[in-house]
Design a binder for these strands. Structure first.
Lengths: 349, 349
DNA sequence: ATGAAAGCGCTAACAC
DNA sequence: GTGTTAGCGCTTTCAT
């Protein structure tokens, strides 16, 4: 009875091999579903694995793996602060990436030009193990994603999904729920009894995340705050300089405006317009993404709430998801779900 | 030039050893600040480490370490759902703990009895590497923590801190900020212009987290919603059965009650009292901790918002913090900060 | 179809 | 004070 020598320790691969009467290499083959093992042996090894409740030691696995992975992040160009946050988070993960034997590069592309984005994606074919893309949901882009996937590149969508494409995974929030959340807060902040008009600013109807947020927002306002009337959404293309005059005009025209929902980026323009109008503290303003500016807007009492998706979580999740797919590891789906954060002045991190 | 054989790869310990002209063991000693190395050698090795930008591979480190750690979680007994959530999360981490060569046990103690808790802690002396405790901030408890720490046991406080004790770390939210957040939301939900009275229910003034939340809540209401009058807080000892009649009486007595802030546990009692009174949907109710019941309360439209601290994050953080202290690893402080989550009906995870 | 053996990068016991 | 050596648990050639 020498096997009582290491008590209370979990089973190792060697234990499985011994119990199954095969070598470690065979167990490894079975565990990774590789060919070249007799069907009967496969069965048997699996049985032993189950019996011993064997689970591989991830530290040993990582240490022994030779393969290196190459990722490419494709993000929108422009001055969008949230995108800057994503890029910054990615940079901050460089040491972790090195430990995971993974390299990641960032490429910036004009996201409002589907053709440009599609061509860029086409150019990535065969150059990376996985491409993580914050995409426009457009037929050309979808086709480009399908081509990449067809050529064996894993595609992960980030922040804004292209659900009917062959992307392996979407990392981001449920944007309909995010829009509902904004509607819930905005309606309650204005006051259930009060009448008034609500302005909406978005980047583009063509951006799936924006369209979904708008949908959720409208749902909740119609159902729970019917006294508030929604004005036609303004398209600012996520650009502050473009957004500011549009919102300034809105503020001048609509004297009964009680609230403003900013669905996308370009919030510096909105803030400027609100400041100029002098109505910044009476209008309930809700926007998305906790950028440094949004933080200021909250602290200044101009923004009532900010709905956020954690850029750090998203980048880490995208990497974990990609590596899990590439190396055949399991994912805890629940762990990869991105939360819809609500920030007000007092719970800022 | 054989060193171009492994290009683009980060430096390993062996590289540092070679460059410094010492053995791997010596580098190891220096890196872990162990004695028995000439001061000059220490300097030199550090210099090489810096020059090569060497950072140890955590996978290799974990694999090689022989030491096992033993943790003990001391949590309040009773029917508190949030505590159940903590215990459940800890159970879910058993495989991770096994990988980290760490064992963790849970012990349940009556947290409202300082003497009992103090005695229990005293009994833990010398039995674990670290004790994680959700403690009452009381002189006897503080002394017990100091004794434990003095005897070489690492103490981490969880959820509710004992700041002047010798605990190595506090894992939990900023409860003053949490109270402020509740005040902010509650005030806005009621409507800035509206008058009325606000009821407050807490477990005990002796619980530091409860006292801090109350403080933050009062701050915000006084400063930003002076038209709302706070009633004297009710102490329900985090117990639903005890809380329910107290709240029922409050609801009967106070016809001008417009909102209710529940600082601690026992929310099932509050929900029952609200349901019985028939005022559940007109009174703005805000409570803490997203338990299964709180989730229902939100979905039913009875709770307006739930302020939450993520039980899973807290348990993982407590373990990481403890292991980092015990094994002398670095911590990314920013990563261990526990968020103050806000949940409404629409952003439930 | 399967096994033997050499690492992956670090730690720890034991020499010297 | 410092070096040598034998693992940690898995992956991956290369044999057979």
């Amino acid at each position: 009875m020498t096997n009582s020598a290491r008590p209370s320790t979990r089973a190792r691969l060697a234990d499985v091999a011994r119990e199954a009467g095969v070598s470690a290499a065979t167990v490894d083959r079975v565990l990774h579903g590789r060919t070249g093992v007799k069907a009967h042996t496969v069965e048997h090894v699996h049985a032993v694995v189950r019996r011993l409740d064997y689970r591989p030691d991830p530290a040993a696995t990582r240490l022994a793996r030779a393969r290196r992975y190459s990722l490419c992040f494709v993000l929108p160009s422009g001055s969008n602060s949230f995108v800057a946050l994503l890029a910054e988070q990615l940079h901050g993960l460089r040491h972790w990436l090195a430990e995971e034997r993974t390299s990641a590069r960032v490429e910036l592309v004009d996201v409002f030009a589907p053709q440009t984005l599609a061509r860029h994606l086409a150019g990535l074919r065969g150059r990376h193990d996985a491409v993580v893309v914050m995409a426009l949901d457009d037929p050309q882009v979808r086709a480009a994603i399908d081509d990449l996937a067809g050529a064996g590149t894993l595609v992960v969508t980030l922040v804004s999904d292209v659900p009917t494409s062959r992307r392996a995974h979407y990392v981001g929030i449920d944007n309909v729920a995010a829009g509902r959340t904004a509607g819930n807060l905005l309606g309650r902040f204005v006051g259930t009894g009060r009448e008034g008009r609500v302005g909406i600013v978005l980047g583009s109807h063509a951006l799936r995340d924006h369209a979904e947020r708008l949908f959720g927002f409208q749902q909740v306002l119609a159902a729970e705050h019917p006294r508030l009337r929604l004005l036609a959404p303004i398209e600012g293309h996520d650009d502050s300089a473009e957004t500011q005059p549009l919102v300034a005009r809105l503020l001048k025209r609509e004297r009964e405006l009680v609230a403003l929902y900013s669905i996308g980026a370009g919030n510096r323009g909105i803030r400027a317009a609100l400041d100029t109008s002098g109505r910044g503290r009476e209008i309930v303003w809700i926007c998305h993404e906790l950028t440094p500016h949004a933080r200021r807007d909250l602290l200044d009492g101009v923004a009532a709430a900010v709905i956020n998706q954690d850029a750090g979580h998203e980048v880490r999740s995208a990497i974990r998801v990609a590596l899990a797919h590439l190396s055949g590891e399991r994912l805890v789906a629940e762990q990869e779900r991105i939360r819809i954060d609500i920030f007000v002045k007092d719970n800022l991190p």
